[in-house]
Each structure stands twice: as C-alpha cells, then as structure tokens.
Design a protein around this nucleic acid. Structure first.
Length: 631
DNA sequence: AAAGGTACCAACCGCAGCCAA
DNA sequence: TTTGGCTGCGGTTGGTACCTT
C-alpha cells in the first residue's frame, strides 16, 4: 500500500542551503529534469527531504527567476491581483512568470501591505484616474477572496479601474514567447519528453502548471458577472487582441501561426477587459504611480537610471571582485587575481568559464558584445563540509572518468559559484535588449508593437551589422545566445519576441539557463583546475606567440568562434596537463584576449580611467572581448 | 560602541487535493 | 476502495542585516 517514504525523518538537514548543495541539486536537475522529488535526495546524497529540494529549486535555483527589485509595474500587478484574488500567491505568481509565489508573498507582507496601509490613511489623495472611473462593481462577488481591509480597499479601487482607456498590451504575448522558450529549453536540455499541450510558463522552464485562466478564474468570472456592463469597454479592441495574448494562462506554447490558429480554434475563454487592463504595462504603471507604491529604490543594474558609474558588485570573500559597467559592458566582471589569491590555501583551482552573450543595449547607441571569463583563485577545498561520498553520489550516474575530480569539484564550489549565481543573476535581472532584427513581414504588420523597433537606432545598426549572418525572422526581434562550450557546435538558441519587453524577459530566462548550464556542464564535466598561461608559457593558440591572444575579427560573428576556440583549447590543455590539476596555482599572470579592433580598445581604458583598484590594472583583466559597432 | 528594535527573506510547517500502489 | 506519499499552496518562523537610540 502506498509508496515508500520519500526520505527518513532522521538525519534530514534543515536550514539554509549551502552553495555546494545548490550545485548538487542544480546539476542533478540539469541532468534529470525537475520532478520526482522523492528520488532527488536519494540520488544526490543530499541530506534534505524531497520537499526541501523542491522548494529550493522552485523558489531559488530555478532558471528564469528574477529576484528583488520589484518594478513599479510588478508592484501594480501584485496589488491589483491581490485585490482580486486575495492571498492566492501562486495564482498571482502565475501572472508574473519571473517571480515566485514566495517572493511575491514576502514582498507583499514586507512592502506592499504597509504601503497600502499608509495609503489608506490618505485615500483622499487618490489619483483622479480612480476618482473618475466608473467601472462596474461586479468584483464584489465571492471570488474576491481576501477579507482584510487592504484587500477591500484595493478591490474597491480595482472596481473603478478605467479598463477601456488602456491601450493593448504586449505583456501576454511575452508569455507566448516564454512558452516557446520553455519548449525549446525542454528539447535542448532535458531528457524528459516534451510538455503536454496545456502548459504555460511558470517562471521556470519545466514545471507543469495548471492553467491559470480557467472556468473558475475570477478574472474571467469577473467579466461574466459584469457582462451587462461591458458595453462601456472597447469590445472592438478586445476582439483584435493578438492570439498570443489569448494564449496566456495555459493556452499557449505553440510555434508559429499554425499553432496559434489551432489554439485559437480551441475553446479559448474570452479575454476579459480586466485582464487587458491588468497586463497593460502603462495601466499598471499608472496604478503604481497613483498608489505611490514605489519606495524609490533604484536598481543598480538598471541602466535607465542614467548613471554611468561603475557599479561594484558585492565582494565575495575569496572570490573575484566584480563590477558592472552600465551602458558599456554589463557582463564583463573585472577580475583581480591578487585580491582573490590566498597563499595559505593549499588547494586552489581556477575554472575558466566562458560566458558569452551578445547584447545590444538600446541606450547610448552602443552595441556591445559581452564576454566574460570568471576567474577564480584560491578556492579552498572544504573536505569537512562535503564528503567524498556526497560528491560521488552527486555524480551517481556515472562519469567515472570524472571521479577523480569530484571531491575537488564540490570542495571548490564552496560559496563561490553560489555567489556567482547570485551576482550574475543580479546582473541578468535587469539587462537590456539583445539583438534586434530589422524586418517586419506582412503577417505582423498589424501587430501591436509596444515598442517601435523600426524607429530605433538598434534596428538601423542591426541592419548594417548582423543582417548578413543571422537568420532573419521578419517582423520579430531575434536573440541569439551561444552556450558556453558549445560554441564550436554552435547550438544557437534563437528566441523570437514581439517586443523589446519580451526580449528582456526571454533574455533573462535564457541567460540564467545558460549560466546554470555552464556550471553544470563546464564546471562539472570539465576539469576544474585550469592553469592559465603566463606570458612565458606555451601559448594556447598558434595565433599568438606571446601568451596574449588576439582575436582578429571584423565582426562579432568572426570573433566569437575564435574566442570559443581559444577557450576550448585552454580547457583541453588543462585536461591533458596533469600538473594543472592538483598543484597550487601560484601567481599566474593572466592572458588578455583583446579583439584586434581598435574600436574595442576603449573598455580597458574605461576600466583604467575608473580608478577602481579592482579594475585598474589591465593585466588583471582576464578577457575583454567587446565590440561596439555603428554610430 | 553596544544594545535593542525593525525589516527582510529563505525556509519550514501544516493542510488539502491528487493519485499511485 | 483504501491507504498514504506527492505536490501545491498559504501561513509562519527563525536567522541575519540594518537601523535607531
């Protein structure tokens, strides 16, 4: 009868997860996919219950999660949905794919609730948009779940929202593309079968989720209840809503017009006006503004703040100091080996990971290609914390050839990769837009672009720079990411989006996937200790005899494979060179890979000019491959 | 500088529904 | 049909960092 217990109660570890536990879990899920949580602690050796593993993955490790720094738009959505749904955080989270229910719940309890309470004391300052609205009062139905005063207040506000005045949204079509992304990610990275038709993006890339919009969904029942009053809305606009919008909430996931048509032929519930308003960014921002929900915090990674300052990322002990260069090169994390090195440590390692992505910012007329080498020194092997058995179990599927490295791996991972996840995640969380395709096809000419890419400088430069090489998906923007260590195979991940905003979402998701993948694949399957060549050593590439390698590329496409080749050569070298593995790495000078394009020489200068001790020495900059084109 | 208070959030707890054995 | 594990969900707690006095 029943199933065997997922885990014994005794010996179960509680409390905060350690970075090495995270890595074990991530690498396991990377290989097997999420689900079957009962087997996770058994197969990985994690002393955690399955529930804890699931929560850790769902709320923290899962790709595509955006953490912290809720935008005013998100705040508006949360407030509005909370007023409609009550404390149904999972349902609310389903409308914010990058946020977890736990995160939203915490944010509500710690921020929004207080702001609403404060706002309730000054309700006379309500924005005219509410005061003048004549929205029907249908939301007083039983589906308005919450009973607290905050909710009632917000429900009252919601009832008076001016849906009809809001322009159409691009938000929901983002969900459509995220579904595509999800599908692509499943095909590419998971051995699991493709998801069944009724899936929608849940902020992660695997999870099966119940359709959010169903018969009992208050957002729909709302309209049903208030149908008599719908005449006050722009029904025509509703009818013209793109199919992708209709797919939101579990009806999406298909590719192309054919799939969309099929989906349209399904029993798709009518789009409610409240949804239109809900997903409309402008409207949500209005809500946020008028509710004065923003606490004025400024996202340090938000380049829209107009700052050109170099942002220092939190320093991780024993790890490489990092900084961000807004508007210039968000992903080039400058490294100072000296600061990171600790001679007292007996075992050190230097994983050479290549994190490459192309990214075009729509600020400053710069097209920047980002390549980062994360260079670690002096990582101590914490044998007390991670047993060899743990390490072995974490690789239970075999990889005997890597067995000699496992203890080193998990010892080395320590806090650093975990922190790296956070740092890069933070950087990823507010990056700009990647490549933008220029064309528009006839099929999309009527698409309601919330951002007119045809008039953007991005598009113009895109035409001159990338048109020849990249596949053209007319009418869309296109993002191409090169997964680390797969550049030679060039598994390009092409994501299509209908707007700049979608690109942001998709890019964030994809980059985090790439990051996880790079950790799982490169750090685990690749040797962990990479001896960097100093200037007197044998060069890694025949391109250079000095140890400094020049990638001569006239374009991003040219330099990218060269860079990857050099990177792979470095790894091969480390693999074949046994002396690279277990010796303490003494002070090694770095190699600088400089693009042979004078236009790229400015970033190191920027770093030098910065006066930042962490970045001032160009010899400490591992790699700078940057391209600025056009303009 | 130290102590106390507060804010934040990751993680746990417990419940309910689902479903496999 | 029954049993009990799995999963999703919302509420709560405990630890840590920050702030105030």
């Amino acid at each position: 009868m029943g199933r065997p217990p997922c885990c014994d109660k005794e010996g179960i570890k509680k409390g905060p997860w350690t970075p090495e536990e995270d890595i074990i879990l991530v690498s396991y899920i990377q290989e097997h996919g999420p689900g079957n949580w009962r087997s996770v602690p058994i197969n990985t050796g994690l002393m955690r219950c399955s529930k804890s593993c699931r929560l850790r993955w769902t709320n923290y490790l899962r790709p595509g999660i955006k953490r912290g720094n809720f935008t005013a738009h998100e705040e508006g959505i949360i407030v509005h949905l909370q007023s409609l749904l009550g404390n149904r955080w999972a349902a609310i989270a389903s409308y914010l794919p990058q946020r977890t229910d736990n995160d939203i719940k915490n944010y509500w309890n710690t921020h929004l609730k207080k702001k609403l309470a404060a706002n309730s004391n000054s309700s006379s300052n309500r924005h005219p948009i509410f005061a003048d609205a004549t929205f029907p009062s249908a939301a007083t139905g039983s589906h308005t779940a919450s009973s607290n005063s905050d909710v009632n207040q917000m429900a009252a506000i919601a009832r008076r929202s001016p849906f009809a005045d809001c322009p159409s949204s691009s938000y929901a079509s983002s969900m459509d593309n995220i579904s595509k992304l999800l599908d692509g990610f499943m095909k590419t990275n998971s051995p699991s079968p493709p998801p069944p038709p009724l899936h929608h993006y849940d902020g992660g890339c695997y999870d099966d989720v119940k359709p959010t919009v169903d018969v009992g969904n208050p957002l729909l029942s709302f309209d049903c209840m208030s149908g008599a009053d719908l005449d006050c809305f722009d029904v025509h606009q509703q009818q013209q809503q793109p199919a992708s919008f209709m797919e939101y909430g579990g009806y999406g996931g298909g590719y192309g017009d054919e799939s969309k048509q099929q989906l349209m032929n399904q029993a798709t519930p009518p789009l409610s006006s409240i949804e239109k308003w809900l997903f409309d960014e402008a409207a949500a921002e209005q809500v946020a503004d008028l509710m004065d929900l923003s606490d004025g915090r400024q996202n340090p990674f938000d380049s829209s703040n107009g700052s050109d300052e170099i942002i220092e990322l939190p320093h991780v002990p024993d790890s490489a100091p990092s900084c961000l260069l807004p508007r210039i090169n968000l992903f080039d994390l400058a490294v100072n080996q000296n600061m990171a090195h600790d001679n007292a440590l007996q075992e050190t390692w230097t994983p050479l990971s290549y994190f490459s992505a192309r990214r075009h910012r729509n600020y400053g007329n710069l097209y920047v290609r980002h390549s980062t080498i994360l260079h670690h020194n002096s990582f101590k092997l914490e044998k007390d914390e991670i047993s060899e058995n743990d390490a072995h179990n974490s690789q239970s599927d075999g990889d005997a050839k890597q067995e000699g490295n496992t203890s080193k791996l998990f010892g080395s991972l320590e806090a650093h990769i975990g922190e790296e996840i956070k740092i890069l995640g933070a950087a990823i969380s507010d990056v700009g837009v990647l490549e933008v395709n220029s064309g528009k096809d006839s099929g999309n000419q009527n698409a309601d672009f919330s951002y007119d890419i045809s008039s953007s400088p991005i598009q113009k430069s895109r035409q001159s720079t990338f048109e020849a090489k990249d596949a053209v998906h007319a009418g869309i923007e296109q993002l191409t990411l090169c997964s680390p260590y797969k550049v030679n195979n060039f598994e390009a991940h092409i994501v299509e989006a209908d707007s700049i905003y979608e690109f942001n979402s998709l890019f964030k998701c994809r980059m985090e996937e790439v990051l996880v993948q790079s950790i799982s694949e490169s750090s685990i399957s690749q040797p962990l200790t990479v001896k960097l060549e100093d200037e007197s050593s044998e060069p890694l590439s025949s391109d250079s005899g000095t140890g400094t390698h020049f990638i001569d590329g006239s374009s991003v496409e040219d330099s990218d494979p060269q860079f990857a080749q050099l990177n792979d050569e470095a790894l091969v070298c480390a693999t074949s060179n046994a002396t690279c593995r277990n010796e303490s790495i003494e002070e090694k000078s770095s190699e600088a890979l400089l693009v042979g394009n004078k236009d790229y020489s400015e970033l190191p200068n920027e770093l030098l000019k910065s006066g930042d001790p962490q970045t001032a020495d160009i010899s400490e900059i591992q790699v700078q491959v940057i391209e600025a084109t056009g303009h």
